[in-house]
């Protein structure tokens, strides 16, 4: 498969030590340059990966990572046996799968509509405005939500008009997922449409002309030219999105949830945060986090493999 370049052919035949010395002599400055980068990855990523062995230990801060006694799978068993296991797992899957259903399709629909706008200036304005929420910080978004969903908030007012009961909506467990997903769609729909707009602008214009000659109206053109045209992009992004089905970020959850909504809002990552950082139950929460990381990696890697098989695109 691999064809060595002419310059490396001679080098490849030499013994390792000779190649190593030659490489060091030629590239030592490059290795010196990359040293801080490697140091970053070691400190911020690989030392914690090693530290994750406390998932198998009775960790006590006084004894340190190495000094703490091993306890086998006790932490994992404790998690799998607790009510939190099914609760956080179901919440994670519900929030992420609904996020895929709405958060994934909305940008596609938006891109199709923007693409149909005849005025370029208007289309640019729509794009600029819909991209805006992407830049608002999560803290502000959640602050606004807690304000708008309060008993006398704007969103509550609208919901009351629609026949719902007046109450603080963020304190009702059943509403949590809807609020989470809706605000997510609001924030990301515009930004997510960028990639589809690019794919749409790449469609050969002769296809539209051919469709028109065949008598296709705009709706038919969307159905038979636009959507097939962006299908590869949709499939690739969908597969990659499926890869992240087990990861719901903790940031927005811990900003939005409260003890009243926890039964519907608590996902694996927020559970890890709470157990580990707020209750200082290090070994146990590391075990839960490790379980999530491993499942996550399996999903991401298989999603990438499927994507690469299907249309030769993947994250790496």
């Amino acid at each position: 498969m691999r064809t060595p370049k002419t310059s490396t052919v001679t080098a490849a035949k030499k013994p390792f030590k000779e190649r190593f010395l030659r490489d060091m002599k030629k590239n030592y400055s490059l290795y010196l340059l990359i040293l801080p980068v490697i140091a970053f990855y070691v400190i911020v990523h690989y030392v914690p990966m090693y530290g994750a062995i406390i998932a198998f230990k009775n960790y006590s801060p006084a004894k340190g990572i190495l000094g703490s006694a091993w306890c086998g799978l006790k932490n994992f068993k404790e998690f799998f046996g607790s009510v939190y296991f099914s609760r956080t797992l179901i919440n994670t899957l519900r929030i992420s799968s609904l996020g895929i259903v709405f958060g994934f399709t909305a940008p596609i629909v938006l891109a199709l509509f923007i693409n149909e706008l005849r005025s370029r200036a208007y289309s640019r304005i729509v794009q600029t405005v819909t991209y805006l929420p992407h830049f608002i910080s999560l803290v502000v978004i959640c602050g606004l939500l807690s304000d708008f969903c309060a008993t006398d908030g704007v969103i509550t007012d609208i919901c009351v008009k629609l026949g719902m009961e007046r109450q603080n909506m963020l304190r009702v467990p059943e509403y949590f997922t809807s609020i989470y997903i809706a605000s997510d769609v609001w924030q990301t729909v515009g930004w997510g449409s960028i990639i589809y707009l690019a794919a749409l602008s790449g469609i050969d214009s002769s296809l539209y002309e051919a469709a028109k000659i065949d008598g296709a109206n705009r709706w038919k053109q969307i159905l038979h030219v636009d959507i097939p045209g962006i299908m590869p992009t949709i499939i690739t992004l969908l597969i990659l999105k499926m890869g992240s089905i087990m990861s719901v970020g903790y940031e927005k959850i811990i900003l939005l949830y409260n003890p009243l909504t926890m039964e519907k809002a608590d996902v694996i990552s927020s559970f890890v945060y709470r157990k580990g950082l707020l209750e200082a139950n290090y070994g146990y929460s590391t075990a839960v986090g490790l379980f999530n990381s491993v499942i996550n990696m399996m999903f991401v890697v298989s999603a990438n493999m499927i994507s690469r098989k299907l249309n030769g695109t993947s994250l790496w």
């Binding site: 990855y41 400190i43 911020v44 990523h45 690989y46 030392v47 914690p48 990966m49 090693y50 530290g51 994750a52 406390i54 990572i65 903790y250 990552s269 890890v272 945060y273 580990g276 950082l277 290090y282 929460s285 590391t286 986090g289 490790l290 999530n292 990381s293 491993v294 996550n296 990696m297 991401v300 890697v301 994250l315 790496w316």
Partner: peptide
């Protein structure tokens, strides 16, 4: 590799 796997929040905090 770090894009696919991480040691998790708690070990990072302890590190």
């Amino acid at each position: 590799f770090t894009m696919f796997f991480s040691g998790g929040l708690i070990p990072l905090y302890l590190t």
